[in-house]
Design a protein around this nucleic acid. Sequence first.
DNA 1: CTTCCCGTTGACGGTTCCATGAAGGTTTCG
DNA 2: CGAAACCTTCATGGAACCGTCAACGGGAAG
Lengths: 226, 226
Amino acid sequence: MGTRILTVEDDERIRIAVRMALEDEGWIVDGAASGEEALERFGEQPADVVLIDLMLPGIDGFAVCRSIRRDSDVPIVMVTARADTHDVVAGLEAGADDYVTKPFQPKELSARIRALLRRARPSSGGSATLRFGDLEITPEEGLVRRSGDEVHLTKTEFRLLCELASMPGRVFSREQLLERVWGYDYFGDGRLVDVHVRRLRTKVEPDPAAPTHVVTVRGLGYKLQG
Amino acid sequence: MGTRILTVEDDERIRIAVRMALEDEGWIVDGAASGEEALERFGEQPADVVLIDLMLPGIDGFAVCRSIRRDSDVPIVMVTARADTHDVVAGLEAGADDYVTKPFQPKELSARIRALLRRARPSSGGSATLRFGDLEITPEEGLVRRSGDEVHLTKTEFRLLCELASMPGRVFSREQLLERVWGYDYFGDGRLVDVHVRRLRTKVEPDPAAPTHVVTVRGLGYKLQG
DNA sequence: CTTCCCGTTGACGGTTCCATGAAGGTTTCG
DNA sequence: CGAAACCTTCATGGAACCGTCAACGGGAAG
């Protein structure tokens, strides 16, 4: 659900400063120190916004921008010390959406990123529907289908299923599930997970007495098997 | 099919200079000398991009920006002498897409406008009539039919429906709807969305008690299903 | 076989969330 | 200037959901 931002910047001090400013906005920040690293990171997991410094070791910011723009519509902001009009124009022509010159105020950077996010196409990349046997999980629609039929899950049930589906086959202990679905600061009945697993099974499993998807591993916890 | 640009600027010399620079790019430029005139012009014939000076006689640039943004997704650029970070943030929060400070190079302004046009939604082209079951939505004329009969919707109701229809099946949270239908700077009662959804349902749904189109997803928001 | 442990099941109070009706304020139009 | 349409806020009732508890049952170890 969080907005992910990839910053490409070789100066570590600036990178850290930018990271802190952006994390204050509630965004998830990923950092790369070179153009090569940036392209690699972006290939693995596309971000929602990319910040690129022009002056980079190896391939420069223009090339990184063009390369990313070849594959994606992601909003791109150039962040650089070169304020020359010619550079600004070149950056924008290379596919960047905005061009900010150092030194810049973090507040202004955040505001410009917000403006870009506002206009960005909402569905650029995210919604892969997970699939397990006859189960289809669509996070964006808050919806699960079993062999085509829609199944209504509550918020907690849905998050529980998503958590299990994030690493299929892996066994999650009750503590892990409590921590990741309910929150780090939860203290309460240990049976809580069981109850929700039960409710989840009545909706997801053809025969709740003989679970085929949400399987219990005695003494350890639960797992989702594909 | 020329691109039309509306510039709002009270200083005639700058207005003429800007006009010449933009016409060099092959764009059609329309000028307004005050906020009132700008809103009037824009109401008559919407432009593809709007340039707004902050310092205007009468209503100021922020208000013009918000007013236009209430009705349209047109790209907006603030052009002003005030370079203070606070003003930049305020301008972007008011709904502007970019903020350029005087003195600026015409080349840079053109490049930024091109970047915005690149990303702008294909508003003029495309959208014929959307269809969901027995519902027909015609965004251009602001018209909705249910099984052939015209249904009169309020402006807000219509924008709400269009927003939901822009991504059928996807769940929109109340925050998202407030942001995209009402405005970026809206702070108020969260129940506001509920009320409009209700009124929308009484007009659009055969049986408002059992909605078939505008469906509520408890804990998440609303969605439109086909 | 017995016992203990752990997961399952059903039910219940408290809470959150949504629908509904109505009232007050604002804008629009005659 | 007045009326109508519309937007926004508030209060209330009800339904869905969550977390807890206690009893039940089945597997594992001795």
